[in-house]
């Protein structure tokens, strides 16, 4: 829809936004995302502080994964910009790592755990060249890091859910990125895996990295994370966990969907699909 310019009312949109510096690994500005033209994220503004563990929390269907995917350009944005260290995603791609949802792949695929982790090195290896000894060793070290060295040569369908998740984590480590996006890494994993994942996250932070995690367990947020984004179709609150986790904010996030906002999403979707 064509935006119309009203100098009188759109004042402040630019000036009141915090001056985003190249310090911030990720800054999202006025991002709206629609699935089949149905808005699922409304006008998100966010600047990620560097060197923090950040949780995205919110109820089901709040758009948590969508926020990650749209930031990475995996799904198109209806509007808004995303910058990485003040530049475009293309420029900073090599510094960004990604752990997709575990269910997003076919775990019966004929590759070993090591093969999957080595995929994190492909970007460095480049086109047409095979995975050399050096990169294999790095991949092995990453597997070792998540306590999976013994299972390196197992086919991935023979791993438990938690082990599969650790393979994904190891692959992200192999990417040697500065900013990580992880989509529900704690979903359906055993206690041992959860501990090992959080250990790795803390190490990443100690090494100056930033990690943004879609998380579904509110209780563990204060112990695991520094910062949180409370999300329910729009950002309800964001910032350091103690500041953000107030009764009021949580109520706003989880206290039922704003029915009118969902209805509005549906109505916008219908209108722009050309339906009544």
């Amino acid at each position: 829809m064509p935006p119309f310019v009203h100098p009188s009312e759109s004042t402040g949109t630019l000036s009141s936004r915090p001056e985003h510096s190249s310090e911030s690994p990720l800054s999202i500005h006025a991002m709206t995302v629609a699935y089949q033209r149905k808005p699922v994220l409304w006008d998100v503004d966010y600047d990620a502080p560097p060197n923090k563990l950040i949780a995205i929390v919110g109820p089901n269907g709040a758009g948590k994964s969508t926020l990650i995917k749209a930031s990475l350009g995996l799904i198109p944005r209806a509007s808004g910009q995303v910058e990485f260290w003040g530049g475009s995603y293309k420029q900073s791609r090599a510094r960004v790592g990604y752990v997709p949802q575990r269910e997003s792949v076919d775990w019966d695929f004929p590759v070993s755990a090591l093969d999957v982790v080595a995929m994190g090195r492909y970007r460095r290896i480049g086109w047409c060249r095979p995975v050399s000894r050096k990169h294999k060793d790095i991949a092995l070290a990453c597997l070792d890091h998540v306590g999976m060295r013994d299972l390196a040569h197992r086919q991935i369908s023979q791993l438990s859910g938690g082990q599969q998740q650790r393979v994904f984590l190891a692959r992200a480590l192999a990417q040697e990125a500065d900013l990580y996006f992880m989509d529900e890494p704690f979903a359906g994993v055993d206690a041992a895996t959860e501990r090992s994942i959080i250990k790795v996250l803390r190490e990443l932070k100690e090494n100056g990295k930033t990690v943004i995690v879609v998380h579904h367990d509110l209780q563990t947020v204060p112990t695991y994370f520094d910062e949180a984004i409370l999300l329910n179709m729009r950002i309800v609150a964001s910032g350091p966990v103690p500041e953000v986790f107030t009764e009021d904010n949580l109520q706003k996030t989880y206290g039922g969907r704003l029915t009118l906002l969902s209805e509005a999403s549906e109505a916008v979707a219908r209108a722009s699909r050309g339906e009544r």
């Binding site: 935006p3 936004r17 006008d43 503004d45 916008v268």
Partner: peptide, 16 residues
Amino acid sequence: EAGLSPDHVHEPAETL
């Protein structure tokens, strides 16, 4: 109700 900040509601309202 939705808790968006005042300087960000103009554009969604433009659609709505």
